Computed example of a mutant assay.
Amino acid sequence: MTDTTDTNTASPASPATGHWRLDADRSSVRLRHRTMWGLVNVKGAFTRVEGDGEVRPDGSAHGNLAIDAASLDTGNRKRDTHLRGPEFFDVENHPRIVFTVTDASPEGSGAARVNGVLTIVGRSHPMTFTARLDEVAKDTVTLTAEVVIDRHDFGMAANPGGMMTGAATVSVAARFTRH
């Protein structure tokens, strides 16, 4: 990738123009969902994630975040095996969850409006949400966001015993380094 950032004078509130790569070791994608008829929060994390992006001269950006669906860890091996199966993430046929950022634009006050497409188990849906810029330095930027996802939008309708209620909340902390 060619670095075009030498003459950029980005403000401390926005990342510099150029190519950025996700620092997977300093990033996290966490999931929580109510179960047991809304009485218990099941929490988990996807442990393998990658991504990249590009910040344009006008401050807008595009890129992608790819998650290894089989890396979901809820701390319960039996539950994880079930979630990786055909009723939910179907990792054998759909090993990756991908969010493609079509446009991210600064909103001011350390926030960005993110537009993109989320693909899970081969089904794609547009999404828009606000991400917070928690750290912006010369060669690093960290964005955080919480996104509510309705699993039914992606064909994950299994609900053993009627125990699962509502949508899942995905919390993302994505740290990028400039390349």
Rank of each mutant, 00 (worst) to 15 (best):
P160Q: 11
R77Y: 01
N115M: 07
G75M: 13
A66P: 00
N93W: 04
S171N: 03
G59W: 13
G110D: 06
A112R: 13
G53H: 05
V148H: 04
V141W: 09
G108N: 04
A70H: 05
G75D: 06
A45K: 02
L39G: 03
I149D: 00
G162K: 12
E50F: 08
G161E: 05
L65G: 01
G44F: 07
D23F: 13
R30A: 13
M156D: 01
G110P: 06
A157S: 12
E50M: 10
A61R: 08
P106N: 01
R151D: 02
A168I: 01
T119Y: 10
I120S: 05
G116D: 08
I67W: 08
M163P: 00
A45G: 04
H19F: 07
W20P: 00
V148I: 12
P86L: 04
T5N: 11
T177V: 14
G44M: 06
A61G: 00
V117H: 08
A158I: 11
M156P: 08
P12R: 06
G38I: 15
D58Y: 07
G44N: 01
A13S: 15
G63D: 00
R175E: 06
R96D: 12
T177E: 11
T35M: 07
D52I: 03
D73G: 05
R132H: 07
N115T: 11
A158R: 02
T7Q: 10
S27W: 10
E146Y: 02
T169S: 03
D23G: 03
F46Q: 00
V98K: 12
D58M: 03
G44C: 05
